[in-house]
Amino acid sequence: MDAVEALAIGAAAIAAGGINAVVGSGTLITFPTLLAFGYPPVLANVSNTLGLVPGTVSAAWGYRRELRGQLRRVLRFGSASLLGGLLGALLLLKLPESAFDTIVPVLILSACLLVLLQPRINRWTRERRAASALQREDGGLPMWCGVLGTGVYGGYFGAAQGVILMGLFGSFLQEDLQRLNAVKNVLASIVNGVAAVIFIAVAQIAWKVVLVIAVGATIGGLLGARVGRRLPPAVLRGVIITVGITAGVTLIVR
């Protein structure tokens, strides 16, 4: 890894860490960057997942005030994220690399669509919350299963898992959205963390890439938790969608 590559990956990691803290789609920045430097897709995904763990943890720490009083919720949904992340990571390692090459462009483009539709999802969430005062505190079994499924997705690839979680939270829970965003960061940390443990045990890893992404994502996660709410959401979505579509098309035609 030369200086130019390290700077480019580090800059992408800072952006991804900040985006993950606020939106939850940072993989759509770092993963295409690794592909652009010639890393094979599975190696890029594994190394990216490991590198982003400190960033998601720092984002969760940055939202620690909003986590107060939510221990029961975090433990309940955390069990689903732990199991889902484990299953997703095992799927990544067990399925052939050709399956990853086929599935990931679809996941990337789907994630871009989710990010594009996020304003509508947010409006629908607010309308649903305003119209119903009967939502359960924990969302019941459907919510737990939704978090489990999101964890499987996150352990396998992970882009926009935060968007999915926030959509689920808004649909099933009656709670302040900033407090829910704090829980989202914890659950993403659990998914990435358990996947990282599996990958360290059995997968090939580009450790220099992991180190660069870890440092950048940690900085970005702390910055995102502090100032991310002030950034224009349209700008963030535009960057994410542009990079994501480029990556998805590149994987399809390669």
Results as ranks from 00 to 15, higher is better:
D2G: 09
A13S: 15
G17N: 00
N20W: 04
A21K: 05
S25Y: 11
T30P: 03
T30Y: 00
L34S: 01
Y39C: 04
P40D: 01
L43W: 03
V46E: 07
N48V: 04
L52N: 14
P54Y: 07
G55E: 11
G62W: 08
L67T: 09
L71A: 12
R72E: 15
R73S: 15
R76K: 13
F77H: 07
G78I: 08
S79T: 11
S79E: 02
G85L: 03
G85M: 03
L91Q: 00
L91A: 12
L92T: 04
K94A: 13
L95I: 06
E97V: 08
S98F: 04
I103L: 08
V104K: 01
V106E: 02
V106Q: 06
A111S: 15
V115D: 00
L117C: 10
T125L: 04
E127P: 01
R128K: 11
R129T: 10
A130R: 14
A131C: 10
A133V: 05
R136P: 01
R136Q: 11
R136A: 12
E137S: 13
G140C: 07
P142N: 13
P142F: 12
G146P: 02
G146I: 06
G154V: 03
Y156W: 08
F157L: 14
Q161S: 15
G162K: 08
L168R: 02
L168A: 09
G170M: 07
G170E: 05
Q174Y: 00
E175C: 06
L177S: 09
L180H: 01
N185A: 15
L187K: 03
A195N: 10
A196C: 09
A196I: 02
V197S: 05
I200N: 01
A201G: 08
V202M: 05
Q204K: 12
Q204N: 09
Q204V: 07
I205L: 14
A206H: 06
W207P: 04
W207F: 12
K208Y: 01
V209E: 07
I213L: 06
V215K: 04
A217C: 10
T218K: 11
T218P: 10
I219H: 06
G220H: 03
G224L: 11
V235I: 14
R237K: 07
G238V: 13
V239I: 10
I241M: 14
G244F: 10
A247K: 06
G248E: 05
R254F: 03
